[in-house]
């Protein structure tokens, strides 16, 4: 069995957790808030399948990234080498700093 390489995902600033899925949506690796989060894996699998078919213009080569922005965190997903990488990051809106 080949080992799943996390590509320094743990070094991403403000990273709260990550999931790595294979083409079938099975969790290959997980960490932090997303540890063994099968529910999020399933939803992202379906969303990636929909999103990666979307064509916004004729010259478009591919979809690069899918992000879900919540009030205090962001979930980012990308596909590379037949794997789906999902990262959860903390999100602090810029306005919050200026108002305090």
């Amino acid at each position: 069995m080949s080992e799943v390489y996390a590509h320094n995902i743990e070094d991403i600033p403000d990273q709260l957790g990550y999931l790595i899925l294979n083409e079938d949506g099975a969790v290959l690796s997980s960490h932090g808030d997303l540890i063994n989060d099968e529910k999020t894996a399933k939803v992202f699998m379906r969303m990636v399948q929909i999103a990666w078919k979307v064509k916004l213009c004729e010259e478009q080569r591919s979809v690069q990234r899918l992000s879900l922005i919540f009030s205090n965190h962001i979930l980012l997903a990308t596909v590379s080498n037949g794997k789906i990488y999902i990262v959860k990051k903390a999100y602090v809106p810029e306005q919050a700093d200026s108002e305090s």
Binding site: L56, S62, L68
Partner: peptide, 14 residues
């Protein structure tokens, strides 16, 4: 949530 889909292409217009 706000869902954001980012695309790329050979030209910056994509």
């Amino acid at each position: 949530p706000v869902i954001v889909l980012e695309t790329t292409g050979p030209k910056s217009s994509a």
